[in-house]
Every structure is written in structure tokens, then in C-alpha cells.
Design a protein around this nucleic acid. Sequence first.
DNA 1: TAAAAATACTCCATAGGTATTTTAT
DNA 2: ATAAAATACCTATGGAGTATTTTTA
Lengths: 296, 296
Amino acid sequence: MESIDPTLARLFLTLAEELHFGRTAERLGWRQPQVSKGLRHLESCLGVPLLNRTSRRVRLTAAGEALREPLRDWLHQGQGLALVARAAAQGQRGQLRVGMVSPAGFGPLPSWLHAFQVAHPGVALELREATLDVQLDGLQRGSLDLGWVLQPAGAPPPPLGWRALAEEPFVLAVSQPAACRLGPEPAVDALLTEPLVLFPRDIAPALHDAVVDYYRAHGVIVQPRQRAVQMATLIHLASADFGLAWVPASMQALQRPGVLYLDAPPDAPRCQTWVLATPALGPVARAFLQGLPSAG
Amino acid sequence: MESIDPTLARLFLTLAEELHFGRTAERLGWRQPQVSKGLRHLESCLGVPLLNRTSRRVRLTAAGEALREPLRDWLHQGQGLALVARAAAQGQRGQLRVGMVSPAGFGPLPSWLHAFQVAHPGVALELREATLDVQLDGLQRGSLDLGWVLQPAGAPPPPLGWRALAEEPFVLAVSQPAACRLGPEPAVDALLTEPLVLFPRDIAPALHDAVVDYYRAHGVIVQPRQRAVQMATLIHLASADFGLAWVPASMQALQRPGVLYLDAPPDAPRCQTWVLATPALGPVARAFLQGLPSAG
DNA sequence: TAAAAATACTCCATAGGTATTTTAT
DNA sequence: ATAAAATACCTATGGAGTATTTTTA
């Protein structure tokens, strides 16, 4: 049982992108015949053709199609191994790659990460700002250890590991004029008839539904005046008097001229934040999770 | 950014096991100088020493230690890629590797798997019988797609994905003599004072605790006469009149001379079975899960 | 001084390059 | 007729082997 030569793997992957032997050779800094020979060699090693090719058309076979993504991931991982070794030689005891959606930056995660970094100085912390779908992809591919996202659904969907780690109240971001209109202690009815800016449902369905249901319970059908995917954008829209925005309390850290934050009514739902753990949960990620407060 | 040569990777891994250049050469079918040269080459590629060696002692450096496990996993994955390609060429549309603890074979999993196989004829189903810890390891390494285990803890522990998929009553496996002693409709008190055979707590803590708590609620402190890790073994012990065994109802499929199954008392706890999903949840595993009945 | 890793040197298999031919549109 | 892949052939790097030297407990 032989492993695939990474050089040939790169060749195949480039070829699968270009679908052209000449351009592939150019991109790799090779000559065209070498590409032909290399691919033939790879195919004979595997025992199956990967590309159907004539002098006019190059197409992936089923085998090529099936091989493409896993091989890409494998090669990518392999490139990381060299870094692992070099880092370990300098006292690095592992890495933790954490994805965050932007608003989460304002939650408790940064301080937890800092505490972890102090407790484990050897660990290389890597933070990446990414949307939910990018994080899910990274977690599945193993290019991300932990994701930090707003609760994207009521129950753990296709079983990646979820873990509730933070819950906080909502606050309402409003413009100065709106704040004046509403007064210092606005009535619930007054609040709910204000224009609203809201994130699209698919960003955080449970969160979205919590807000919508709350409005419905008070006899108001939600009709957002504007939608935006980022919490920060919503707050900017609110500051421009587009309407009020329901955001997690930790977003109050984002202070902008013309924006005030009001407490949500006492009967309003609370806002949940979650950690979403990769399946390939490394020892470092485990250590990190064990150091966290046990969740609700 | 260059990837590690798999040949050198194999060399290093063998060397890390043997800690001896000569024996390593022998195991690989090489000559000793080639091992020296190969390792030096690898080290110069990485830019860090992997082994501290004198003519008397060979030891892994920190970098070598850090590289060992991930490299092993990487190489293993790489070997699988060739199989993926070959299988795809023959219409194979993916694979699903499912781990089962032995008693689970008697639960609903086999029929679900069969239904899945019918719906997805191209998928290569691979079943492996393995204990909980082996399955967890396989899931983390990505060498297993799904694990099928008895509920090992009340709540999802270090976040691998869990999903409850089956719940069934307990039944009591007893020997013929014990059945005679107890009579056809035994009183709860009579049952609970019978000697007991039980699995160790760490096999399935929640299940274990459910039984123990039930006994305690009736004023009985559980003192198993014998422990065994496999449900089938417990039943064999019961048949030899060691005591009665609490087992999932689906275990009744295991009919052995000298064993009878009694229904558990109506107030007894129920027994939960779970699917535990890998983090690196492949598209095939997802398709499988979507085809299942939604769980309680 | 003896076991084991490193070095010196040889050889050939093959990765990579140049020139040319074949093929399909 | 022509763009593009395949083939033929050449070269030289470096993988693999043999013999020997160096190292250290």
C-alpha cells in the first residue's frame, strides 16, 4: 500500500483546475511533456484513469472527481506538518485555530482566550474572522479547531459538536432621535412599533426566531425595514435612524456617535452564544474547553 | 511550502518506533546508511532535528515527538486516498465506516444500515466492532465516520456530536432456576434482591447510573456479584446463574439455552442508545443521518 | 573495544528537459 | 489546419547499495 507522491498530487490538483496540460506546466514551472508523464505515472500507480483527454478536451473522470477534494485536504494538512515540527522545536506545544463571527469579538471569548494563552504559553493561538459557513467548512476539513458563533439553530443540527457557553440579554441599539422619541423608559408597545433592522434568518435562525416570536406574542408581525448580515452593520444602520436593532448586550462595547443602547424589556428573550467544536478535537482544543466555565 | 515525502515519513515513523537505525533499515528492507541519509534529508527539509542520536542512544526531540502522531495520521489518510480513487472508478460513491459495540448489533442499527444501503447502492459500508474508546479514537482520527454506542454519559461530554436515536426498555436476563424461584410475575422487591451481574460504570455511565439509582430508590445498594464489559457476556453469566442482568430489550435476540428474559418492572428506567457522529462529518454520513427518524 | 551511526564512493533509475509526432476538431 | 497531448530521446540529479571510518559508552 503506497502513498501518493505529493508532487504528483499537486500536479493532479493543478490539472484538475486548469484542465489544460500546457497551462498546468506553466503554473508549476515545468514543461508540458513532464505533465503528461507525471499524470500517466500517477494513474498507473492508482490503477485508474483520472482524466479523459483528447487533444481538444480534458475532463475529470469519476475517479478524478472523487479524488480531488480529499487529496486537496490531505496535501494541505501535509504542508501544515512541517510548521508543526518547526514550531515544536521552539517550545511551541500545539496550536489552536479559532474562528469567530465578527460580533462575537465583543463577547467573553477574547478574555477566555487570553486566560488560556496565559495558562498555556506554548500554544500558538490563531484567530480568524469568518462567517458561519466558512467556519463549518473549516471545522469539517480540520483547518479550524473551534468555531465561535451565535446559536445558528435551536438544536444541534447535523451533528457537529455544539456547546452552549454564554448567554446574555439583548439590548436595543437606537439612534439619538429615536431615543428622544421613545423617552428614557419606553413602553414595550412603543418599542415594538419602531422600525426594525434585522439580520437574515439563516445567519442565526434561533436568534432570529426568538425576536420574531417575541414580536408576534405582542401582536406585531416583524417587517424589517432593512436587513444586514453583520451586527456591527445593524448598529450603524440604527445610528442612521433606519430603525432599532436587537443585538447581544456585549455589542455595547461598540460605541459609535449617534448610537444609544437601551435595555430590552424584561419579558424579552435572551440571546445565546455558542461554541461549536470541530469533530477532530485535538488535545489542545480539549484542554481549552476543560478550562472554560461549565455551560448552561 | 513543500510537503513531506511519504517515503521519508514512513522512515521517520519506523525510526520513532524502533529508535535504532539498523533495525529500522531491516524493517523497511533498506540498508542502514540509507536510513541515516534519509533522516538527515528530512531534517534538513524541515529545518529542525527530529532525533538526538549518538552511537549508543537514539531519542526523539520535542519536534520529533510533536510530529509523530499527526504524521502517522496523515500518512494513513494518504493511503486511503488510492482506495477512494479506485473505488470511485467502479461506481463507488463514497464510504461509510460505522463502529459498533457488540450489543448494538442487536438494536435497530442493522436495519437502518440496510435501508441506507438500498437507497445508496454506491456507498461502501464498512462495519467494525469496537469498544467505546477505540471508536472515540477512530472518530477523532477520522478513520471512522459514525460510532454506535450505548449512551456513555448523561450529556455530550467533550464535544463530539451525539445524537439520541433509539430508546428501548430494559429486560432482565435470568437463568431458568432463577426464573423458577421468582415465578412468572415476580415482585419488584424479589427482583432487586436477586444477585446482579453488571457492566463497569465507565462503559456506559448513564446507563449504569440509571440502574443503580433505580435500585437505590427501592432501598437497595447495588453490589454486583460479577462485572463484565459485554452485554453478551452478562447474559452468559446470567445463564450460569451468577445473577440477573439488566440489558436492552433488543438483546432478547440473543437466545441461549438456559436464559429467559423478563420484562423490567413498569417503573424501571428505560435504556438509551445513541449515535455518536464524527467531527469530520462527511457528506455520506450526513446523508445517512438525514435518512434516519428524527430523534427524541 | 564493540556496537552503532556517519561518511565516502559507486551506480543506475528516473525526474526533468528538448525535439518531434500524433490526434481531433 | 492547428492547437494540444503524446512519444522519443537525452541528461543529470539523487536514491540505493557497498565498503569504511568515526563515535561513545
